[in-house]
Design a protein around this nucleic acid. Structure first.
Lengths: 191, 191
DNA sequence: CCAACATACTCACCGAGTGAGTATAGGGTA
DNA sequence: TACCCTATACTCACTCGGTGAGTATGTTGG
């Protein structure tokens, strides 16, 4: 009964792990620095504490996507430098190709992150990424509008809840076109 | 640096625990039934699995906000019937009075839930609740707009991220006025 | 007669996220 | 010189969020 949503087996895409993989795709780094980078570059997108960053790095290493080794420094304490494994590279590349779901949160954090790395790694691909996402959003909007029209009127709060989701997704669609115009000029200069 | 957000000590307000407290404020009930109620009445607002419902009930009981006792049934297996304690009643009443933060998610789920119970328990209060929330949202919007104007232009993705948050919150504000008109007529009949 | 479905939970597990703690180095001040 | 604050660089223990599988029984449809 209207359980759409596309939850399925949770892929962890809504934690900043791909951002960390992305930074490591650019160059190897250690946890503390990665956290600083995350805050500076994507602080408006993700809000992650230092220990959370280490948690994710630990998990990514356990799962074999990154691998780290202690690098002693003179004066300052030794630090663990991570680099992407082949599996990690594959995972990141694959993620970069696939559009986000059509939940507002997914788009705000995951799509923005994807856009960030697309601009850095293959700027010509950004437009395509946005178009792809627009299509997903449009599809989601249709489904939601249909669901709303099918909902009994006495479900006041449920109707309002869905109505808000529709408004939110509509403004996401508008924002996506804003993205295109915001990136358009710089993008033209690239090619 | 722009850590606004009002995180502070996390109050658990973004899990459906208050919805469960609310249902129990109306009448005592057992886990399975509470879950059904949650899905039927607020399914567009919260997406909670059965086991998650039991998790939360377990925690609420450990924390002393609800208390349950096994009620044997003939034929069907015995079930644990919960009722609100005084502490739970206080907690729920206090929550019902206080506006949500100005994050989109907080409003979508928490405010909607508050509105749902306000309409059931003290319908005359709903308008006031909405007005209160509008003020919070307007304040948040101002802070975000200011933050955006202060952000360096080279922070493209961060700027876009904040811009989306602003769009989202703007559409929340519009939705709140939709709430008022949607509830207005029924509401007039109440007084 | 059997399968599917509804009732009513329980359990084990992993990821999300926080806060406190550890240790060292460098810079400023009283 | 003693002291404190900040920055670097983590580690640990803990709670909450959330899922999926499993258990056990009764009812209903083919």
């Amino acid at each position: 009964m209207l359980e759409s949503q596309q939850r399925s087996s949770y892929t962890g895409a809504l934690s900043p792990e791909y951002a960390l993989l992305g930074f490591l795709a650019l160059r190897e780094a250690h946890g503390y620095g990665l956290h600083q980078q995350l805050v500076q570059e994507l602080g408006q997108v993700w809000h992650v504490s230092l220990s959370q960053t280490y948690n994710i790095l630990g998990r990514l290493e356990r799962q074999g996507y990154i691998s780290g080794s202690m690098m002693p420094q003179d004066k300052l304490p030794a630090r663990r430098t991570y680099h992407l494994t082949q599996a990690g590279r594959r995972r990141f590349d694959q993620w970069l190709q696939s559009p986000s779901g059509c939940s507002v949160h997914a788009i705000r954090v995951e799509f923005s992150t994807r856009l960030y790395f697309a601009l850095l790694l293959q700027p010509g691909y950004a437009d395509e990424l946005i178009d792809l996402q627009v299509k997903v959003v449009q599809g989601g909007l249709q489904r939601m509008r249909k669901a709303l029209s099918c909902m009994p009127p006495e479900q006041t709060v449920n109707r309002l809840g869905l109505s808000l989701r529709i408004r939110q997704l509509t403004s996401v669609a508008e924002w996506l076109t804003e993205c295109r115009t915001a990136l358009g000029p710089a993008h033209d200069m690239e090619r």
